[in-house]
Nucleic acid binder design. Structure first.
Lengths: 343, 343
DNA sequence: ACCTCTGCTGGGAGCGCTCCCAAATATATA
DNA sequence: TATATATTTGGGAGCGCTCCCAGCAGAGGT
């Protein structure tokens, strides 16, 4: 069992000191080219790699970013949202040569263990937190520490944190306007949980758009829990109100709603025009293809990493809110090509 | 800006030495109860947390496990497989109080950077590698280092590594037998990529089962790339051969196949009985609900962590292969409740 | 030839912890 | 009470790196 090589060993072999090797490894320009070449040769030949923990300790920076996702974990990946977010964050860390540490809450026991692990000094340089539900305890906790963090989504108390969000409200409003323009007159809403800020914003945006168009949902409102099943149930209930259009606050729930519509012997988009939110489900997954308000999740993740890095290195000091626009992608489920529904 | 507390500081406040505090933190039993109590009081009061990097350096163990997923990243989470795997691995690391580092390959540039990052000493204690395609360069590379690793899936050269796999072959065989028992006589196969071991095993298992039942696929064979679109195309082509049953090597591709069947004006399961592999798509996602061979992905992930931990701590030294059973879940798409198809 | 200035290099100190051995104290045995 | 033994505690050494300052060489100016 041969010992691991360290800077000193490489230095000895190259006839230079520890410090010089360190400079070469860190691309410090103050090294004579020939010296540098020699050291690099030894490094290549020995396969030397600097020890990450030692580096972190000495430099007080780990090169690791934490992503904390608190949610009912079992069904986490049933919704494409988190996968995409992880993809974006991973892309962001990769481009900075950083490492991504993923913290997923399972049950409540994990939660407290993770909360304390996340703030352990010397483990991560900063954290990205998804603010799925209002009153996220982790955010409060982080606020009391000096661990840099950014929130994905809109945090409850807007002013004190860095965050990256999408224009939920604007997107939902656009959906309402589109449905109205299509001539639909009995719009329904399947909202996302009202204990999430995204859910609240989408609901308000939709109602706002409707109001602008002189429409209202009246009693045609249901609420799901993001799951497909909840969308189906909500839709089944709503059917009694004979809506001619529905805005479903997430793709996932929309898939369920679609099922309920079909099970009732109705046709989407002919009988009911549907627009959902997210734009994450591959269009071909459903028949008809979902028209939905697309949010750029991957970009959100990437951007969150960049923002966090600027917080870590002190470039950003005053709370900053980045909001990405959302855009309605018209496909089949809204029935744009059909013209107004026959009453 | 107050300095971060260290063991020495806590010791001073509690009137004991650095070492004693360390013992308390690490639950070493050789501490007098009252001393322990006093130290714990100081820790609680100051909110002290040991520095992870310092710990890693001194103890030569990081408490971090790496999960490396090499795949076309953009579409990674379109397939529920990886999400579930991550969930399982995350559950495994959480239960050991460990941290999960996630390495996703984006493009080829990421690949080499990640490969070298993964083997950096002092970053992770070990790695879990998904062996999506044959001849995975990372596995070869790891074999040349002393970084502990376990492979999820069957590696090419079976004998030299630790791995956790599922019984792809047996599951596919069961699918064939089931289709045959249903009275189907013109079975087709939409295989997974033959440059993956899972793809090869599923194909062989299916053919084997068919042979046992005295059937054969003849020309009714297609191959997809795991994507839904590829399943659809393969099925569309296959339709010309007038199959009365099809085994699709993944749920995802099966969703595409279902679409092709419907687009051709045929009915599944009446005209074509379909069985897929994975059991990961929520049943209600499709109409009809998919009958599929279920693989316990989450358990695989959990088990991989446990196995890796035993490799890390030296408990396991001789390559060990864990294989989970797979099980056919009969739902609607195979048409079991229909009786034999009318020719 | 002398001095200065710049460019490169070496080495001490220290990051906060664990490991281990020895010292100090408490307990058991004769 | 004296001695042996077990329990608890303290502190040195070191993990491998970065940071910083001092030293040393060679180039340039007078």
């Amino acid at each position: 069992m041969k010992r691991r090589l360290n800077l000193e060993d490489i230095g000895r072999r190259a006839g230079v000191s520890r410090s010089t090797v360190s400079r070469v490894v860190n691309a410090d320009p103050h090294v004579r080219p020939e010296t540098k070449k020699r050291v690099e040769a030894v490094i290549a030949e020995t396969g030397y790699r600097p020890h990450a923990a030692a580096r972190s300790l000495a430099s007080n920076s780990t090169g690791v970013i934490g992503l904390v996702i608190s949610s009912a974990v079992e069904t986490l990946f049933d919704d494409p949202y988190f996968g995409r977010l992880i993809l974006g964050v991973s892309g962001g860390t990769n481009e900075g040569g950083m490492t991504l540490a993923l913290f997923l809450f399972g049950d409540q026991a994990d939660a407290s263990s993770i909360i304390s692990r996340v703030v352990t000094p010397g483990l991560v340089d900063g954290v990205i937190v998804t603010a799925t539900t209002r009153g996220n305890p982790l955010i409060d906790h982080l606020q009391g520490t000096d661990m840099p963090f950014v929130v994905v989504g809109r945090p409850d108390s807007a002013r004190s944190t860095f965050c990256v969000d999408v224009d939920n409200r604007g997107g939902a409003r656009a959906a309402a306007l589109h449905l109205a323009a299509l001539g639909r007159r009995r719009p329904a809403l399947i909202a996302a949980p009202s204990n999430t800020n995204a859910g609240v914003d989408r609901r308000n945006g939709f109602l706002e758009g409707l109001a602008e168009a002189g429409l209202s949902v009246e009693d045609r409102v249901g609420e799901g829990d993001w799951s497909q099943g909840s969308g189906r149930e909500a839709m089944a209930l709503l059917l009694a109100e004979r809506p001619d259009a529905v805005f479903v606050a997430s793709d996932r729930m929309a898939v369920g709603a679609l099922r309920a519509i079909r099970e009732a012997g109705l046709d989407c988009p002919r009988d009911i025009s549907l627009v959902s939110f997210d734009g994450l489900v591959p269009p071909d997954l459903t028949m008809p293809r979902l028209s939905s308000v697309v949010q750029p999740v991957t970009e959100v993740g990437k951007r969150a990493v960049r923002l966090l890095r600027s917080v870590i290195d002190g470039t950003s000091t005053t709370p900053e809110h980045v909001v990405f626009p959302t855009e309605l992608a018209v496909r089949e489920s809204c029935g744009s090509t059909l013209g107004p529904a026959a009453t």
